[in-house]
């Protein structure tokens, strides 16, 4: 290393402008995108999982499971068409968990400290990181839509646009949930437990695979569990918006849960209130 310029200590800036925030946000998204590019297998595995469900699971079930005409569908639909919103939700659910996993990893390797010692407000840093994760999930979702189109899953063309804001919101909710969970998981090894106790129950106890009326016929308690599962409402929000309709209850629940999880994550990472400072340091 060599000399710094004489202007090294000249400036004494005060406050942060919108430009500072924009540069910081762009930097966080850019870093997330670089990391994503370096982990191509993550992109592929995120697509393989729902495609297996679409190609194999749905192909088998279409013969035994009829889906009657329920909103937003105007006619009978193939089972592949029915489970597509659930598979989109699955992509975002796994992406949210992947993001939280990488936050636990970052915390263990120390690179999370780099983010947290930024002078910009911590809530802004966390929301930026969350939005960066959502951007990655949106890319995965639209690639899945493109492949599903060749499998005869063809919602109205305008649906690809109308579903966009819903995908942003559901991505935020699931990402915020992952972020909140990451604040509670202290070691990377413990994350497998999250997979077993969060992802799978959320996915299976929802309207992703079966319509709620069918679940009600089979098991009323399970129906109510599904109703209380935020993932059900995320899937229904995606399903309706994909056909240009708005499910207000799903919107309200998804929005409310997003705020709840995000608030929890911000509190957990807040040095004044969170749980991070209770961990012991060495040295």
């Amino acid at each position: 290393m060599s000399v710094l310029t004489a202007s090294y200590v000249r400036d004494e800036p005060r406050g942060f402008s919108a430009g500072h925030y924009a540069i910081c946000f762009a930097g966080i998204v850019w870093r997330e995108a670089l990391r994503f590019l370096h982990q191509r297998e993550r992109f592929i595995s995120a697509l393989v999982r729902p495609l297996l469900w679409l190609f194999i699971f749905a192909a088998g079930f279409r013969q035994v499971l009829g889906v009657s005409i329920v909103p937003p569908y105007q006619t009978y639909v193939l089972y592949e068409v029915y489970i597509t919103p659930g598979l989109i939700g699955m992509i975002q659910l796994f992406n949210g968990m992947q993001s939280s996993l990488s936050m636990v990893y970052d915390r263990e390797t120390g690179s999370m400290k780099t983010l947290l010692v930024s002078p910009l407000p911590r809530w802004f840093l966390l929301v930026s990181k969350l939005l960066a994760g959502v951007a990655v999930s949106l890319l995965q979702v639209y690639v899945f839509f493109a492949i599903a189109w060749f499998w005869d899953v063809r919602p109205p063309v305008t649906g690809y646009l109308t579903v966009f804001p819903a995908l942003v919101l559901t991505g935020l909710m699931l990402g915020a949930m992952g972020m909140f969970l990451s604040s509670m998981v202290h070691q990377l090894e413990n994350f497998a437990g999250v997979m077993n106790f969060v992802i799978f129950p959320m996915y299976f106890a929802s309207s992703a695979l079966y319509p709620l009326w069918r679940i009600l016929e089979a098991s009323p308690p399970l129906y109510w569990i599904c109703q209380f599962n935020p993932f059900t409402h995320a899937v229904e929000l995606i399903r309706f918006s994909l056909y240009g309709e708005l499910n207000l209850i799903a919107l309200a629940v998804t929005l409310g849960c997003t705020l709840l999880f995000l608030g929890g994550a911000i509190l957990a990472y807040d040095p004044a209130r969170g749980i991070i400072s209770r961990k012991r340091q060495v040295g």
């Binding site: 500072h20 930097g27 930024s118």
Partner: peptide
């Protein structure tokens, strides 16, 4: 560059 961005530096 990433660290600079966290401080709002282009």
């Amino acid at each position: 560059v990433y660290h600079a961005a966290l401080h709002g530096i282009p």
